[in-house]
Each structure stands twice: as C-alpha cells, then as structure tokens.
C-alpha cells in the first residue's frame, strides 16, 4: 500500500480567498483541510473545516456547555445569515500554523503515526518542496476496503 496511491490532490488556499471557496474545495476533494500558500509562494499554513467553524461559530463557553444547550439559542435563530457571514469572509484570519508534512516515499503506518501524534485525521504530502496532496484516515480506510479482503466468520 503506497502513500502516492492514497493521497488526494487538492488545490491550495491563497491570501484573500473566500472561506466559501476553501469549503468548496474541501467538499469536492473530500478532505478536512487544504494547505495555505502565502504571497511568496510558500506553504506556510493550513485552513481546516473544523478550525474555521470553531473559530467563526463556537466560542469556548459553548463547547464547555455543549451538553446543556437547548434547541432555542440566539445564534441559531438566523442560521442562514450566520452561514453567509462566515462564507463571505476572507480566509486569511482562519489560517492555522502548518503541520509536519510527509513525503510520498514513507509508509502508510508512519503517516498514521504522524497523524496520531498531531491528533489529526489528515496530513499534507510534499516532495522536494512541491505540494502533492492530502492523505486522510478516510482515504486509507477506503484503500484498505478496496483490497477486497474476504473475512472468515469467527467460530
């Protein structure tokens, strides 16, 4: 199982890009995040769906009080307006620091170990400074299933 067969090529976020366009790319490629390339062409960060949603919609106290939240909340009364407000913002203030990136020649188990170390379910793949794509736990699971392994039922 080679990493280059598992990675998912994606576009990258750039300064001034709208959140809407980043979300569109993540949904199209079925990845939780894409890298961020700065004005100098360097991959300096990442934009993830989870971090962006947390930063734009979830103050810490809502997370802390998650279990007790009722169905009537002020922030849910105009959800469409809130969605528009978030999607139409520029991506720049939602850029997170770059994670450790992997190369295509490493093993899948190392990729999984690195993701676990960063408490993440994705990692970016780069060869000689050139961005190749994202590897995700979902993509690895998809690849495992594609092996068509037949399981015998336990006795």
């Amino acid at each position: 199982m080679k990493l280059e067969n598992i990675l998912i090529p994606t576009g990258v976020a750039t300064p001034g890009m709208l959140i809407r366009d980043v979300f569109t790319e993540c949904v199209r490629a079925q990845v939780p995040a894409i890298p961020f390339r700065d004005e100098n062409g360097e991959l300096t960060g990442r934009v993830s769906l989870r971090d962006t949603m947390k930063k734009s919609c979830l103050p810490e106290y809502l997370v802390e009080m998650a279990y007790v939240l009722g169905n009537q909340l002020s922030c849910t009364e105009d959800a469409e307006e809130k969605a528009r407000e978030v999607l139409c913002q520029q991506v720049d203030e939602y850029v997170m620091p770059r994670l450790y990136s992997l190369t295509t020649d490493i093993t899948v188990i190392k990729a999984l170990a690195v993701m676990e170390k960063h408490n993440s379910n994705y990692a970016f793949i780069m060869d000689d400074g050139v961005y190749k794509g994202v590897v995700t736990t979902l993509a690895i699971a998809r690849r495992m299933i594609a092996l068509d392994i037949i399981c015998s039922k336990p006795e």
Binding site: M65, Y67, V68, L69, G70, N71, L73, S74
Partner: peptide, 16 residues
C-alpha cells in the same frame, strides 16, 4: 424570548 432561551437549557444533561 431571551428568558425563554434560558428556560430551554437542559441542565439535566450536564450530569454526565
């Protein structure tokens, strides 16, 4: 309406 939102909080769910 605002007070009703407080009354709809589910304090029982806090006891995990």
């Amino acid at each position: 309406e605002a007070r009703q939102r407080i009354m709809s909080l589910q304090e029982g769910e806090a006891i995990t």
